[in-house]
Nucleic acid binder design. Sequence first.
DNA 1: GTCAAGTGAGAAAAGGTTTTCTCAGCTATC
DNA 2: GATAGCTGAGAAAACCTTTTCTCACTTGAC
Lengths: 344, 344
Amino acid sequence: MEELLDTTGGKRGRITIHDVAAAAGISISTASKALNDTGRMGLETRERVKRIAAEIGYRPNALARGLLSKRSFTIGLLTNDTYGRFTLPVMAGISDALVDHGVSVFLCAIEEDPALAQIHVEAMLDKQVDGIIATGKRLDRRLPVDLSNLNVPVVYAFTEGAPGSVTFRSDDAQGARLAVEWLAKLGRKRMVHVTGPENFFSVRERADAYRRVAGEERPVLFGVWSESWGHEAVARLWSGGGERPNGIFCGNDQIARGVIDALRERGIRVPQDVSVVGFDNWEIVAAQTRPPLTTVDMELKELGRQAGLTVLALAEGRSVEPGIRKLPCRLVVRQSCGGDTLGI
Amino acid sequence: MEELLDTTGGKRGRITIHDVAAAAGISISTASKALNDTGRMGLETRERVKRIAAEIGYRPNALARGLLSKRSFTIGLLTNDTYGRFTLPVMAGISDALVDHGVSVFLCAIEEDPALAQIHVEAMLDKQVDGIIATGKRLDRRLPVDLSNLNVPVVYAFTEGAPGSVTFRSDDAQGARLAVEWLAKLGRKRMVHVTGPENFFSVRERADAYRRVAGEERPVLFGVWSESWGHEAVARLWSGGGERPNGIFCGNDQIARGVIDALRERGIRVPQDVSVVGFDNWEIVAAQTRPPLTTVDMELKELGRQAGLTVLALAEGRSVEPGIRKLPCRLVVRQSCGGDTLGI
DNA sequence: GTCAAGTGAGAAAAGGTTTTCTCAGCTATC
DNA sequence: GATAGCTGAGAAAACCTTTTCTCACTTGAC
């Protein structure tokens, strides 16, 4: 009790429970039980052991603990989203949800390389991860690796899951409805939808929802995910002799940015003449657009949080209903539609 | 040898070295030595054990191995770069360098929260990481946590390190020289530098290098890291009665984007009338700018790779010279300066 | 035929922790 | 005063590997 404290952490290696036991003059079994609030023991002993452990800076070795408990308090996050545009919010949500439970996250970026993916999966399994979350950049694409027969739980987030698995995704239809209803509420009835390639599942889903709310006859322009397509779409809409829209719902923020820039170049005012709404709420694009973009946020952080909690539940043996869970999107009102002073 | 293979991985838990030994009719010691190419043993036995291990799908438990060897083949990456703009390339480089060595990476995003940082650091230490890499978004700011007295090696990458540590950073002065020399080579002698806040170390370093090459009298406009500052800077330059520049070196790609947009709005052609060069090579901005941006790449992936190899070396007990290592930047030529058809 | 050297393989310990089992001593009950 | 039940605490096993030590056996040399 009056020993010199070795603040360097001991000459060799870390402080173990043996050191705690020795310092308290008890056995390691008793020390363990005291620290974990298990077993039978005098309250006074328990407190004393805890105090001594804290004093000498004891921290249990997670490897040893994991070896016995078969829980490593570690999960793996597998992603093929190199840019991290979708992965980072998901990661943030997972981490946020799990840090309280002492769980750390291995991040593995696998590009589209099946061999690399396999290596990472094996490394994670060797390290006894409690579970794996697979995430990506497209709802309708699989990661280039088969995770269906692993003996750890797998949860899919923002990527296509295996049959019978748990999958979290954004509710793109609902997100599109939010956008369209907002435009309608602002009186923008002459709507058009400028979006990405039709072979994307989420593009079709958003377009369908848009047509259901705005009217089946309202036009949809499919293209690519770039600013320049936004420019081109505006050129097409304004050069033809057809109806000029006063509300443009874009498939992502980059297209919206292109659309707004193109409108400005034509002297068309946003939002006075035309309202524009984007999709993704990619801060760096949405906030820098002039005017700042009203856009749909997929709440990817919340999606990550739920995926994290779910994989944890599975790891703890709790059972989880399989299936696809659609999480609601949220409309972020900035200035590209007007109405931003209304409150929502 | 003719046993039924249990492809499910056994009814309970994973396949261990005991299973290999049993299947081969030998002891676990012999199995271990066979698989690790250690000890003395008949070649035939060794091969047979390896074959059987592969057949039944044995993979060693990294936890058990780590407990003994005191190496977890795991490192931690600590970052306060929420957007991940700088962290992701660094992470990719680290992962790329270490995956061959069987090392996995814990990613911990700590924002600016010292308590959160502390929790993550302790979780990593509990999990016996072999080392920690600290990274951030500013060269002249510390992470909100003290890593200097840990008993694992720490390497700093793109953030300010503790005294006596190993730190990797980009050579911003050299990067600025690349940009300025390129403008000069294209005959753009009337240069101006539009950059971020002067209290950033890298801003000062780039500005100093710019002045040394372009001439001490050449103007520098300090501002903020946004597109709108680019617009404002152009307005300032073209509204006054002063000299009109024909080469603009911007402190980052967002400012460059704003500058180019502002120039176009004034009917000034890029690159015919004015050449613009950015900094960061942030694909999403640089490639979508019209025309696409010639810019300086800080080679963060390479920086990550070297940081990874260094922390690994330290973990293996090899000694590494402390100090700051500046890694060269690279000029990425697109079309915003002209000269892109020259070759470089 | 004896001895030394070499070969193949197993037993056991170690790594740090948790958990189950056992045991000695005490209190309460009749 | 004996016995049942309780209390506090320790011994030992278990988790999965690796490594060191030991041992039995073979071979070659004298």
